[in-house]
Design a protein around this nucleic acid. Structure first.
Length: 934
RNA sequence: GCGGAUGUGGUGAAAUUGGUAGACACGCCAGACUUAGGAUCUGGUGCCGAGAGGUGUGCGGGUUCGAGUCCCUCCAUCCGCACCA
């Protein structure tokens, strides 16, 4: 009887669906385990072999946990709002919902072929109104909340109002009262607060809300016609499409993620993620300790506030530099300097972020004509503006200490500015040539800091700054608030309407605000977002003068989806308390590392917020995370000369650049890297009449190059083809067999036959004489040994997420059992349970043939996954002396290390060999080797 | 520049706390069975050497009875951040 994987896999796919095998419900008698994949954006291109890699790993782990007896939540859904569907809509006029629906259907078909144990009854889609109703609801909670630095958590805005009513602005810690608000309205007394009109109160509260409408510098991408968050920009261009981005001051919805900067940092210590992702997040949050210092402007009643990490160098300040965008630049520039400064600002503005980043070595700047007073020496200090100071970091102003900061040094040198050395270097160092930037040395020229070490001076300087009331110690973060508006159609509408340009929230009972129909998916002629095209009647709710025309960014829906899986159909709550208390946070999260500063940060932020609000009992969404590597494609490149002839790659000895490179669909490449010319001729017209210069075997060889797997490189391998040819079980095991999950690697289909052959061999174990047959005799000692070795190895492998070595263990086991001609029921049954997570279809088939109820293998727990079960079988322990192997003892595997030691010492061979001496050290590696050091 | 990760045969890789390096698989070589083989099975396969033997985990040192594994220096590749004050 042949291993007919098509028949078997179709059969079980249907059975599982019929039996509802993978449906789970809350069960207080069982321990929960939550295994989650990062849900995909359903793109038009469908799945390639890289996509399921992580899904297979999580599926194996989820099944393993089920077999161990856990109640496993393992859901799947779609992150279905996004740009590609919208761009397709712009081109074709087809509603993005239709495209999305089609793509989801295709994804589902592809996913189903692989045999995942998802509970599909819990599917969520971020673009469905039933789902985004709750995204809108969470937005409302964020709008109605502020971050109370005294209690260190988010609270309802009412508690802030209560504070203002009682104590005015002095009721809250002064440290959070920075930025624009300070200048406009602060401070105010309780009495003044009560007398403010509603508009003014509203405006003040807007400075505190966690979701707020505010004017700030944002990344505007003209080509995409929308603003972007910092994580959506890579090297100064948009992540999608690579379009230039410029900084623009705009009124936008933002999320006050900065309020959570410290907790986002601290939380990293409590979760089990790779060091590299944690480090990326730490980098992104960018905590630095220092001080903020105010320099009073001479001739104005204003002051310039700077942030510095080196308050110890305060006596070395020789000028102050403002970012060109700094709002004081216009105010303080003197008449004589005005033209020059204006020209400089214009020049800076004209340069894109990318250009500005590209030439960081060019020094530019202009003197503003203004001076500030040094807070301690009272000396006049010139104020410059220069684009090496970034408006988005700190206060957008720096105190320049050329002697001890490299950029300040270059700037000073370039413009011939003064330089005051205030630190004596610890070793020979030429302070005329470079800045001494080490945080070591002794202070000089620094009044009360003289003689102190840098470390002491930092402390002392902050004390003195605070004493003189010219500033304070401060922690600064690189993290910026996240822009939350997008000028796009295909996203969540805001639950917001405007009356007299004041935003109001829509009542809960009117949620969701559904996406209205529009005639075109483009911005309006006067630059309003696409939603401005909608007639008032097209909205399912309309109030005030107009609705909010922006939509939410892609990360809105994905910041809380893992909660919705727990209670996907709940119409009254985003998730019920009972369900979230049972399932809690995700125990194992598998997905790519590319979301380090996007999704993974935002999801942590929202989770902390919902925790503060008392809706959920945990602060970190994803306890353990594994980042699967990317599967790359091997493109096939052919070379065409200037006459249009294609040359075999092995014939080309001259310069490759004189040839035109063409990528060939990899389906047409044979195992020996030659092109299937007949297929190629039929592929594209250009190849039909082409002349081919073949090698001595009459073949045209291609060059292989590793690229991202993508349609445009013609190097895509789909899981569908492989399922068709080898079956899902083979595909699952092969993807795991490829290597460590975390590593990126090029896809190579060649090795798949090895895994396929293994499954056939496993199948044959049960069909020694052509028919299904197992014997019920006592298992042999050898077979037991093989089995128990495999159990132990496999459990160890799974517990440390080493899925590749797990496959190898099975291969070794099956090879050994084949050699032993073992067809013992007990042994094969146990092996089948072990293999079930990896190869669910074939094992279910065998299981039912062994006489068990259909589907019971996937839906029960088995003791071999819980107890070691390593009994009566024995291991050969080589016993060695100082590294040289001396003899072999046969010892039972279930002995403790102490028992092994006892038995070895009691063994006649040992006694004879030791001749009365006692070993100094006794090294036992369980299952491997015993070593005695004399 | 700062931070993170990786480096083992022709290839993907294993070696879990330091304990027989290269398991397992691909590929390759030889053979068996076959009309045939992209089927199945058997044997071989790190490198040098006919052999005994020597040698071997990016380079160079160190600790140890023993190092792919621990420590130090350097090199290479990949990723993240980067005028962050």
């Amino acid at each position: 009887m042949e291993y007919d994987f098509r028949l078997i896999e179709n059969k079980w796919r249907q059975k599982w669906a019929e039996l509802g095998t993978y449906k789970v419900t809350e069960d207080p008698n069982k321990e929960k385990f939550y295994v989650l994949d990062m849900f995909p954006y359903p793109s038009g291109a469908g799945l390639h072999v890289g996509h399921p890699l992580g899904y297979i790993a999580s599926d194996i782990y989820a099944r393993y946990k089920r077999l161990q007896g856990f109640n496993v939540l393992h859901p799947m859904g779609y992150d279905s709002f996004g740009l590609p569907a919208e761009q397709y809509a712009i081109q074709t006029g087809q509603h993005p919902a239709i495209t999305t629906e089609e793509n989801i259907a295709r994804y589902r078909t592809q996913l189903d072929k692989i045999g995942f144990c998802y509970d599909w009854s819990r599917e969520v889609r971020t673009s469905s109104p039933e789902y985004y109703k709750w995204t809108q609801w969470i937005f409302k909670q964020l709008f109605n909340a502020w971050y109370n630095p005294m209690s260190n958590k988010a609270e309802h805005i009412d508690t802030l109002i209560a504070i203002f009513e009682k104590n005015g602005s002095s009721g809250i810690d002064s440290k959070i009262l920075t930025g624009d608000i300070e200048k406009e309205v602060l401070p105010f007394t309780a009495e003044e607060w009560k007398n403010f009109d509603d508009k003014k109160k509203f405006d003040i509260l807007m400075y505190f809300r966690l979701a707020y409408l505010g004017e700030s510098f944002v990344n505007w991408c003209p080509a995409l016609g929308t603003v972007l968050a910092n994580d959506e920009i890579v090297n100064g261009v948009s992540e999608r499409g690579g379009h230039p981005v410029e900084r623009k001051r705009m009124k936008q919805w933002s999320m006050r993620i900065t309020a959570y900067a410290q907790r986002l940092l601290d939380g990293l210590e409590t979760i089990d993620w790779t060091e590299s992702i944690k480090e990326t997040q730490r980098n992104w949050i960018g905590r630095s300790e220092g001080a903020s210092v105010r320099f009073p402007l001479i001739g104005h009643d204003k002051q310039i506030e700077v942030f510095t990490t080196r308050p110890d160098t305060i006596f070395g300040v020789s000028f102050v530099t403002l970012a060109p965008e700094h709002e004081l630049v216009g105010t303080i520039t003197t008449e004589e300097q005005r033209d020059e400064v204006q020209a400089y600002i214009q020049k800076t503005k004209a340069r894109s972020e990318r250009e500005r980043q590209a030439d960081v070595n060019t020094i530019s700047g202009v003197f503003t004509g203004a001076f500030v007073k040094h807070p301690f020496t009272g000396k006049s200090i010139p104020v410059w503006t220069g684009d090496y100071v970034l408006v988005g970091y700190g206060t957008g102003a720096v105190m320049a200490v050329p002697a001890h900061d490299e950029r300040d040094f270059k700037f000073a040198k370039h413009f011939g500015l003064d330089r005051t050395q205030v630190i004596i270097p610890t070793h020979d160092f030429n302070c005329d040539e470079a800045a001494w930037t080490e945080k070591e040395g002794t202070l000089m020229n620094s009044d009360f800091l003289n003689g102190l070490s840098v470390k002491e001076a930092v402390k002392k300087a902050i004390q003195e700054i605070e004493k003189a009331k010219v500033g304070s110690g401060k922690v600064n973060y690189r993290l910026r608030d996240a822009v939350f508006s997008r000028q796009r159609y295909w996203g969540e509408p805001f639950p917001v309407y405007y009356k007299d340009e004041v935003p109001y929230l829509v009542d809960d009972q009117h949620l969701p605000i559904e996406l209205p129909e529009v005639d075109k998916y483009l911005p309006t002629e006067d630059g309003e977002p696409p939603l401005a095209r909608a007639e008032k009647s097209a909205w399912n709710y309309a109030e005030g003068d107009r609705m909010e025309f922006n939509t939410m960014p892609g990360w809105a829906g994905s910041s809380w989806y893992f909660l919705r899986y727990m209670d996907p159909k709940n119409e009254n709550e985003f998730v019920s308390k009972g369900k979230v208390d049972y399932w809690k946070n995700v125990d194992l999260y598998i997905g790519g590392s590319e979301h380090a500063t996007g999704h993974l940060l935002y999801a942590r932020f929202w989770t902390k917020f919902l925790f503060d609000q008392g809706y959920i009992p945990f602060e970190e969404p994803f306890q353990k995370m594994i980042n699967q590597g990317m599967i790359l494609g091997k493109s096939a490149i052919a070379f065409i000369d200037s006459e249009g002839k294609m040359h075999s790659y092995d014939l080309i000895s001259d310069d490759l650049t004189s040839y035109r490179e063409t990528r060939i669909l990899i389906d047409y490449i044979n195992d020996d890297e030659s092109i299937n010319l007949d297929a190629l001729r039929n592929w594209q017209p250009q190849f039909e009449k082409m002349t081919y210069v073949t090698n001595s075997q009459g073949k045209v060889i291609v060059k292989r190059e590793v690229d991202k797997m993508s349609k445009r490189w013609f190097n895509v391998v789909t899981p569908d083809d492989l399922c068709e040819k080898f079956g899902a079980d083979t595909l699952r095991m092969y993807e795991m067999f490829l290597g460590p999950l975390e590593q990126s690697k090029p896809w190579d289909t060649k090795g798949i036959t090895g895994v396929h052959g293994f499954l056939k061999k496993y199948w044959r174990l049960f069909h020694l004489n052509g028919n299904f047959e197992v014997n019920d005799a006592e298992p042999t000692k050898d077979a037991l040994k093989t089995l128990h070795k495999t159990i132990k190895k496999l459990r160890d492998d799974l517990d440390r997420f080493s899925f590749n070595t797990g496959v190898s263990s099975f291969m070794i086991c099956v090879n050994e059992l084949t050699d032993q001609k073992c067809n013992n029921r007990h042994i094969l049954e146990q092996l089948t349970i072990l293999m079930a997570p990896y190869a669910p279809h074939i094992t279910e088939e065998i299981w039912s043939k062994l006489g068990y109820a259909e589907g019971s293998l996937s839906d029960a727990s088995y003791p071999i996954f819980n107890e070691a079960h390593l009994v009566e079988s024995a291991y050969n322990y080589p016993v060695s002396f100082n590294g040289k192997m001396r003899f072999v003892l046969n010892l039972s595997l279930d002995l403790s290390i102490e028992q092994i030691q006892e038995q070895v010492m009691a063994n006649p061979d040992t006694i004879k060999w030791l001749e009365g001496k006692t070993p100094k050290k006794f090294i036992i590696v369980p299952g491997k080797i015993i070593n005695m050091v004399m």
